[in-house]
Amino acid sequence: MKTPEEELAEIKSMMEKSTRFLSLSGLAGVLAGLYALVASGLAWFWIYFPGSSWGSDVAPLSFKELLNRMLLLGLGTLVAAVSSAYLLSRRKSASQTQVFWSPASKRFLLALFLPVALGGLFCFALIHERAFELIPAAMLIFYGLGLVQASSYTLGEIKNLGFTLLFMGILAAFFPSIGLLCWTLGFGVFHLIYGALMYYRHER
């Protein structure tokens, strides 16, 4: 064929491409973004509504009630996002008759879930230590790290999403007062944007 250098480059690129999890659904990213927007809207309402000028007659929630609601809300959002990602990716891989549980998809999940699981534990530690204002930052940073790490096993857009979330996370860590805003932008808006981008590039 070509020169040996080109042939080696060809081999390398094929090895790289074939070890990536390509069934990751962009639509799932869009849905996860929407869930996050709804969830942060609710959180916003519960945390800040009583204090705002036009809600002064609403009694603020008790601390315990607020914490319970936030935990349930977080859990619900996580379950909804993960299950739609699973179902939609499963459907995408079936429509392309690919193997869903390929070595690439397992590597992708392992790389993503180690930082995310540790991040979850870390957030519980933050609750325990009453450092609530740092939770949005911690969630963004750990999830961002997971995405950057997992991006070498899947579609390239994931890497940029990861870096964007890391940036939002650091911002939220230095300015905890806008933590919820950063969380909404990161998990809601940017998920939506990158999910749509992936959908138009790879599923149309």
Binding site: M1, E7, E10, I11, K12, M14, M15, K17, S18, T19, L22, Q96, T97, Q98, V99, S102, P103, A104
Partner: peptide, 26 residues
């Protein structure tokens, strides 16, 4: 000596198994 066979072999070197449709789409 054919680029397609070289590519197939490269893919199978780093993946224990690979299916026909995935090969085709890749």
């Amino acid at each position: 000596d054919h680029v397609l066979r070289l590519r197939i072999m490269s893919i199978l070197m780093v993946n224990p198994t690979y299916d026909f449709t995935s090969l085709k789409s890749l």
